[in-house]
Structures are given as C-alpha cells and as structure tokens.
C-alpha cells in the first residue's frame, strides 16, 4: 500500500456522506466506523471527519487483554478479532484518539480498517471516494508532502524563516482552507 489518507478538517462541510459510504463497505455490517462531529458547536458550525490513525504501535492493541487487535502487513490496524474479543472496551478507553466503537449486542469492538478490501489494492476507502469537499483524500505520499509544504509556505508570507530550533512551529495552524 503506497497511498496514504490525508484529512483536512477545515474542508469538512458536515454532509456525512463519508459515514453513509462507510456503512456500505463490505464487512462493516451497515454500521459506520468513522465520525463527523462539531468542533465547537457554540462557536461555529465547523465539523470534522475523524478516522483511525492506524498507529504503528497502537495503544488499543496494547491494552487489549485478549490480544484481539491485529495489524496487517500493510500496517492497517484491524477491528478486534471476533473470536478473541471478550468485550471489555479497554481499547475504546486506551485509544488516545477515541476511535474504537463497541457493539454491546454482538459483544465486539469495531473500528475503521481503511476499507481493507479496497485499500489493500490501493483503491480509495469508501469515505475518501465519496467526500465531496476533499476533506478526506487517499493520495500518494509525494502528493501529501507537496500539500504539506504548500500549507507551510502559506505561513511564511511575512518573511519569517524556520530555524533548526523552531521549525515545528511552522506547521499550519490556521482556521481556513489552504489548498487549491
């Protein structure tokens, strides 16, 4: 898998087509695994899409007492294996991003698997393939680097240059859409 997921929260228009698409994905049993929520409802109507980060060393897998969360060779963190999951929800509370969902009836955890049947073959996951405002994109690594550079450039218009000691301060931080 050479492509990556690229999220731009500011681009989200809150249409929730990503959630509708997620429900359609094979193996998702008509339940969405991603989130679309308001950032700060009292301040603005800005929404954001949220997916699993597919961590290299996932906290959810580390806190699972049944060793049920497995990572594929492509690096996709899968939902808890149904035969192992004991339904304790440790993963839900261990995940720093609050991603795993839990189905009380079927007693199992389910989470974004990047539509493994599609992304395995470099096909965009359901959510990325339907997002009308490109808030969720499934793009090449190089394309992502170019986008990030462009965002950083926007912060340099006043002439301040990043130094070795403070270059991390130059990652984009504005509220607004930067990309074309």
């Amino acid at each position: 898998m050479r492509k990556i997921m690229y999220l731009e929260f500011e681009r989200c228009i809150g249409c929730r087509s990503c959630q509708a698409a997620c429900r359609e994905c094979g193996g998702h049993e008509a339940k969405e695994r991603n989130y679309v929520e308001y950032v700060d409802f009292m301040e603005s109507r800005q929404t954001y899409p949220m997916l699993c980060m597919q961590c290299k060393d996932p906290a959810c897998a580390r806190v699972c007492p049944a060793n049920a969360i497995q990572i594929t060779e492509e690096g996709v963190v899968l939902s808890a294996m149904e035969e192992k999951c004991i339904g304790c929800r440790n993963c839900t509370f261990g995940c720093p991003f609050g991603i795993p969902k839990f189905d009380f009836e079927a007693n199992k955890m389910y989470k974004c698997d990047m539509c493994y049947d599609r992304s395995k073959y470099d096909i965009a996951p359901m959510c990325a393939s339907v997002c009308p405002s490109d808030a969720i994109r499934f793009i090449d690594f190089d394309e992502m680097q170019a986008l990030r550079r462009r965002r950083a450039q926007m912060n340099l218009v006043e002439g301040k240059k990043p130094q070795e000691g403070n270059k991390w301060e130059y990652v984009p931080e504005f509220f607004g859409v930067y990309t074309d």
Binding site: V39, M50, P96, F97, G98, I99
Partner: peptide
C-alpha cells in the same frame, strides 16, 4: 476524557 472529548 470520554472518547468524544478526546476526538474534539
């Protein structure tokens, strides 16, 4: 924090 607050 609850998962929703963590995401936010």
């Amino acid at each position: 924090y609850c998962p929703a607050c963590r995401r936010r």
